[in-house]
Design a protein around this nucleic acid. Structure first.
Length: 645
RNA sequence: GCCAGCGUAGCUCAGUCGGUAGAGCAGCUGAUUCGUAAUCAGCAGGUCGGAGGUUCGAUCCCUCUCGCUGGCUCCA
């Protein structure tokens, strides 16, 4: 075996000693760097890792996209380095890169305070300036255990014992050493643009019964600008926060006296909700659905049959006793729809049935999980159940998929991420329902996605126990994903309630049942809408669509007549007849994010016109009332997301 | 539920090293009748989240409790 190997870096080819390191290549090629890692024959590795065979090598700079995870992971190590410098005796848990940055978990008696975070960040920056080197060593497993035991790092000892191979790689910098595969940056100098963001609790190995650790979160980027942009984005997200905008725009509220996780829809929010519901109903009727109503409570026996009392009881509220019988608040609508199904004998000729309901359900959520409109204890699901024969299932799935995507688009969500959740192939016994049914169900989900050419991610093992499903997540204005639609097969309920239909053969058959929530819940969807539009709803959804602002008292009658004209034409309109100057009225209408503003004074009264202002676009000048009305009506009725006058 | 932080007027916030609180906006009243993002003046508004304790005295210190925030866990 030759002790030379040939290396290709970009356009250059060179022959080097076997065992040369990527960092040597950089020197040899006169590449300035800095570099954070190297891609050797497609695999990311340390700059200091020897190359043992002919290879194609790419040096990875901090600004390369594939560097970001390395920067994050290394920044997590830097964080631990600083923490151990400042708080010796702290035990380190795990510290990975995550989607938005990195974190590290620590075990320590005293809580980290915000001041501690500042001190830690400062120490991190010192270490960056020192450009401390990061060293990799490989120890035999037993030695690695000893190594961490000597340092008093019991958590690491546990990890090495559980996960370590025969040879364990360890990264070391300052007082900190980690059991870690890498790769890592060669030294800390490239981690200058780092910021610690928050501290929170976390469980050791994610186990609720396990030890409680303290987790410090941070973000890191290759350039200062990217870090600043990220911080601006966090600020931007805060400005869109529906929990702030909701009460500000008088859309909804909560009340301590009412209780956590319960939402009060204020008049303006209720208006928007009513518009959403009406649109939803009309689309469902047009789409071949019946819209049902069912009660909020049901007898214990119903929940026993459905199985909820068996496996879902912890999420249900305590029963109330009525005439010696226990009744439960509903956590789901399906048993009620099934009762309607079972009210008569169904023929295959009746199917498919598509039954939808805006059904308000109540679920116990642990106090710490409640979050604005997004996680609540009482909410209205836009639920539907499709009951059909095996022969109909492909058509029905395609139909519900198209329907869902189309309705999401009505609200401005056209950029979606789709996930197909299927069984865990290694654990088939934990699922209910016959194997051939699972196969057919999965096949029809895939067929529908492929028929429409939709990209999707296959989530192995993510199916719920009763059937495979498709989830649709929508992307909002600042790129965040929100789960809305879920289309799930249910092989459980139809069995438990012994749902049947009479087939052509005169025999009883088991229908397919598909659950579907499209918007998800009205509360949650409304929260997502508020964040997506930053409170500035498109015209057709806006609680007030046209504000009419008289300049002086003598213009009020005219303003009110315009409001009546708008209202008579189906537009939601209000006049501001406060004794304020027009500048103030405009400011208030703009702050309320009213899409269209009509200012009227002497000139407009005299000519029977109005001065138009479009939210976010400013003064558009004088308009004829009839022409304005025609356009506004058109935008409203067509549900345009943007208006153009 | 767990860890940490927070809770002062409707909102945003100041303040009190323990002697029962203050501003701006919003509200009300009055004046102003005004041309594209805040007219002026006056008034009113708080058992300082709730309960208990320590103290001559608690909004401030302690305990419990409720709620909110960031996460964790959970979300068949």
């Amino acid at each position: 075996m030759s002790d030379k190997i040939s290396i290709k870096v970009g356009d250059s080819s060179l022959t080097v000693d076997r065992g040369s390191r990527p960092s040597d290549l950089a020197v040899r090629l006169g590449e300035a760097g800095p570099f954070v890692a190297a891609r050797v024959n497609g695999r990311l590795q340390d700059l200091s890792a020897p190359i043992e065979e002919d290879a194609e090598v790419a040096l990875v700079g901090p600004r390369d996209t594939e560097a970001l995870d390395i920067l994050r992971h290394s920044a997590a190590h830097l964080l631990a380095h600083a923490v151990l410098d400042l708080y010796p005796g702290t035990q380190t848990g795990i510290g990975p890169a995550v989607e938005t940055g990195f974190y590290y978990d620590f075990l320590r008696e005293d809580p980290f305070t915000p001041e501690d975070l500042e001190a830690i960040e400062k120490r991190m920056k010192d270490v960056v300036r020192e450009n401390a080197s990061v060293e990799r060593l490989v120890l035999e497993k037993g030695k690695a255990v000893e190594f961490f035991a000597e340092k008093g790092q019991e958590l690491k000892v546990e990890l090495v014992r559980e996960k370590g191979d025969a040879a364990v790689s360890i990264y070391r910098q300052g007082p900190f050493a980690d059991f870690c595969l890498g790769p890592h940056v060669p030294s800390t100098g490239v981690l200058a643009n780092v910021k610690l963001l928050s501290v929170s609790g976390a469980y050791w190995k994610g186990d609720e019964r396990g030890r409680q650790l303290q987790r410090i979160y941070g973000a890191v980027f290759a350039t200062k600008k990217e870090l600043e942009d990220h911080l601006v984005m966090l600020e931007e997200a805060k400005k869109r926060d529906h929990r702030k905008l909701g009460p500000e725009l008088e859309l909804f509220g909560t009340s301590d006296d009412l209780g956590g996780g319960l939402i009060l829809w204020h008049p303006k929010g209720s208006r928007v909700r009513a518009v959403i519901e009406q649109h939803w109903r009309e689309r469902h009727w047009a789409g071949g659905y019946e819209v049902l109503y069912t009660p909020h409570i049901g007898r214990e026996t119903l929940w026993q049959t459905s199985g909820h009392l068996g496996f879902y009881k912890d999420s249900m509220y305590a029963p109330m006793e009525i005439d010696g019988q226990n009744y439960y608040l509903k956590p789901m609508n399906c048993p009620f729809h099934i009762q309607i199904y079972k009210a008569k004998v169904h023929s295959y000729r009746d199917l498919p049935l598509r039954w939808a309901e805006l059904g308000t359900v109540y679920r116990y959520e642990r106090s710490g999980t409640l979050h604005g409109l997004l996680r609540v204890r009482g909410f209205t699901q836009d639920d539907a159940h499709i009951i059909c024969t095996p022969a109909q299932i492909d058509d029905e799935i395609l139909r519900v998929l198209d329907f869902s995507i189309s309705i999401l688009a009505d609200f401005g969500f056209t950029d979606n991420k789709i996930e197909l959740s299927v069984r865990d192939p290694k654990n088939l016994e934990k699922y209910c329902g016959a194997d051939d049914r699972w196969c057919q169900a999965e096949a029809s989900l895939v067929k529908a996605l492929e028929a429409r050419g939709l990209a999707y991610e296959r989530m192995e093992g993510e199916a719920v126990f009763y059937g495979p499903k498709i989830d649709i997540k929508v992307k909002d204005a600042i790129g965040r994903l929100w789960q809305c639609t879920t289309i799930q097969f249910d092989f459980n309920m139809s069995e438990r309630f012994d749902m049947t239909y009479v087939g052509e053969d005169g025999k009883e058959h088991r229908p397919y049942m598909v659950h579907r929530a499209l918007l998800g819940s009205l509360e949650r969807f409304f929260g997502i809408l508020v964040e997506h539009y930053k409170g500035s709803f498109p015209l057709w959804l806006a609680p007030v669509q046209v504000a009419v602002l008289p300049i002086a008292e003598r213009h009020e009658a005219y303003a009110l007549s315009l409001v009546k004209t708008m209202t008579d034409n189906g537009l939601r309109s209000e006049a501001d007849i406060s004794r304020e100057k027009v500048g103030k009225k405009i400011r208030q209408a703009e702050l309320a994010k009213v899409p269209l503003i009509l200012v009227v004074g002497d000139k407009e009264v005299e000519r029977g016109t109005a001065a138009l202002r479009v939210h976010g676009q400013g003064d558009k000048g004088e308009v004829e009332v009839a022409a304005f009305l025609a356009k506004a009506k058109e935008f409203h009725q067509n549900k345009n997301l943007k208006v153009d006058f």
